[in-house]
Design a binder for these strands. Structure first.
Length: 566
RNA sequence: GCACCUGUGGCUCAAUUGGAUAGAGCAUCAGACUUCGGAUCUGAGGGUUAGAGGUUCGAGUCCUCUCAGGUGUACCA
């Protein structure tokens, strides 16, 4: 239900009837319950343009507002706000209409955009660590969200599979293989360290490593085979993490750095031809306006840099993938890099003007005390370990709650533990740094996934207890039911906003509001108690059912599972 | 040096992009139970939005300066 755009239409025709021109009509949520459900604040701006008294204009507009359908009441307040109340019967009709809808009232976009979402992008030389967490889950949520709204999403996992360190790694892999020991790749971190030790201790090995770098680049079959098997193993590690994390990235989504290798000379050629780049100190450089430091696109020795690869990728995404919107879910510290690369790509016509290029930046994950996240030993924690710890902690938190089988406990612990890690991350506004805190994320209180999952389980418990078909209508009878029904109908507006701005926390804070209102409703309005008449009971049961559906769908967009019992 | 980002109750975060008296959760204190799952709910205290100017009907949000912290910045990605 697109409530805001429905209201915009009503206000628009009121403005037309009042003989007033307005370009864009923005409806916002009321800031307080006394001010109604929604408000239109545009009159003040219009009054300024028309040089008239805002309250006078507001009164004129007010007289033209149609209050026969969704709106029950309107008023002029303050300097010229128009406050809007929605009709309870309208809320009843709308909520009952979406009760059997698997999309809980969320429509699909009329014209699908092609959206490329570039996220995760792990480096194949190393094990995934906590630094990859945010990109992976924010990007995945964004993808799921856009897909749900009907956009055509093309996921791109731009893995780092190219560079000098691979010479060392495959040389070491070869050495290990001849010993018949292929298990070494279990721990990439260790493998890397061991290879580095060999590199430092043996001149022969170091030379071989350097030689292998050149050979891979030259297309040497033996080396490429080694390289490929290394990448396969490393990618396998990533896939384990994705599976644990409930992140939807597959091999089909992998478009590695190396994929763009043969397009790099063309990128340089194009930039040279268009006069965008020039040689400086032996390197091919682009000097952007307002900056005296160049962006190097080709080193003095002929090698390419990541800006070059990114340009090739942009070109590919525009020309081959035909993207309308390209989102890079990458650490906020790379803001400048993307600004530059986007600017060059547009100047050079590698990306059409109308294509939206967005850097979806996010802040750094911090440990306690706001310092960089480290293990007790001072290293960077591996993502697998972190996720395993989350599940163990979740299990510990719920093990005394209820008698159940070990399998059940494991499944619930997994949903809760992983959900906690993801929710904690997604519920903070993307751009700010975020402080990782186990106790907070695994709390039943406050804005946590566990609180949402708990609310869902409670509703399921009520429905199980009732154990019968629920029919009849939803009667929005009092203030709290009004708020709950309206909240449930706001789902689509919320998702739309989150998709446009790429802000998952919009969804979490909405879900938190839904659950808070539901908890109030639940305290004030008993459902199954004996003295409740059947019509009321059915109405309340249906509101509860719909609430559960919104929670379930909302969490699933965040890649978080619900459980029937906690 | 230059550029960008951040600064909101004790702590962790919001604030619909310039709207009404800046909202939540932790924590603190005070209440509610013969519990439809109390790991819940109700209420209270706690703020000069780092500071100073400015723009206007109206500023946490925009502009200028100052302070504090962070990040990036020529051949890594």
């Amino acid at each position: 239900m697109k409530i805001k755009s429905e209201l915009s239409k009503i206000i628009e025709s009121a403005l037309i009837n009042a003989d007033i021109n307005a370009e864009e009509i923005v409806i916002s949520d009321a800031t307080k319950p006394e001010f109604g459900d929604y408000q239109y604040n545009g009159v003040m701006k219009l009054a300024k343009q028309l040089k008239k008294n805002p309250r006078e204009i507001a009164t004129q507009v007010l007289a033209e507002i149609d209050t026969t359908g969704m709106i029950s009441k309107v008023e002029v307040a303050g300097p010229g706000f128009i406050n809007i109340w929605l009709n309870n019967e309208w809320l009843s009709e709308q909520t009952i209409a979406i009760l059997d809808d698997t999309r809980v009232g969320v429509g699909q976009v009329e014209k699908a955009q092609k959206v490329v979402v570039d996220y995760s992008g792990p480096n194949m030389a190393k094990q995934m660590h906590v630094g990859h967490l945010r990109s992976s889950i924010i990007g995945d949520t964004l993808s799921t969200l856009l897909e749900f709204l009907g956009e055509e999403v093309i996921r791109q996992n731009h893995i780092g599979d190219w560079g000098t360190q691979f010479g060392m790694l495959i040389a070491y892999l070869e050495e290990q293989n001849t010993d018949g020991n292929t298990q070494e790749l279990k721990d990439l971190e260790q493998f890397y360290k061991d290879a580095k030790v060999r590199f430092d201790e043996s001149e022969d090995f170091a030379n071989k490593a350097r030689e292998y770098v050149v050979k891979i680049q030259g297309g040497d079959e033996h080396c490429l085979t080694l390289w490929q098997s290394f990448i396969n193993a490393s990618l396998g590690h990533c896939e384990d993490v994705y599976k644990k994390l409930n992140v939807n990235l597959t091999r089909e989504d992998v478009r590695a750095e190396s994929f763009y290798n043969d397009q790099l000379p063309q990128v340089i050629e194009t930039l040279k031809e268009k006069g965008i780049s020039r040689v400086s100190d032996g390197a091919e450089c682009v000097f952007l306006e307002g900056s005296d430091v160049p962006i190097i696109i080709q080193k003095g020795d002929g090698g390419y840099l990541y800006a070059t690869t990114d340009l090739a990728a942009l070109n590919f995404r525009d020309k081959e993938l035909n993207a309308d919107r390209i989102c890079y879910v990458v650490d906020a510290r790379q803001a400048q890099h993307f600004k530059q690369v986007f600017s060059i790509a547009k100047q050079a016509g590698m990306v059409k003007d109308e294509v939206a290029l967005e850097h979806i930046g996010f802040g750094t994950m911090m440990g306690q005390g706001g310092k960089p996240f480290k293990t007790r030993e001072g290293g960077t924690p591996k993502l697998v370990d972190l996720l395993e710890e989350a599940v163990v902690r979740a299990k510990d938190a719920i093990k005394d709650r209820d008698v159940r089988s070990e399998e059940e406990l494991d499944a619930v612990a997994k949903a809760i533990g992983i959900g906690a890690v993801k929710y904690a991350d997604l519920s903070i506004s993307r751009e700010s740094n975020y402080i990782f805190n186990w106790d907070k994320m695994l709390s039943f209180e406050g804005n946590t996934s566990l609180y949402m999952q708990y609310a869902y389980a409670r509703i399921q418990s009520i429905l199980r207890k009732h154990n019968a078909e629920v029919t009849g209508s939803i009667i929005v009878a009092d203030e709290v039911e009004h708020r709950l029904a309206l909240m449930l109908l706001k789902f689509e507006d919320t998702l739309t906003k989150a998709a446009i701005e790429a802000t998952p926390h919009t969804i979490t804070s909405y879900l938190y509001d839904v659950v808070t209102v539901f908890m109030k409703f639940y305290e004030l309005n008993p459902i199954l108690r004996d003295d409740i008449d059947e019509a009321t009971r059915n109405s309340r049961l249906q509101l509860a059912t719909l609430t559960a559906a919104v929670i379930e769908k909302g969490l699933s967009i965040l890649g978080i599972e619900v459980v029937e019992k906690i």
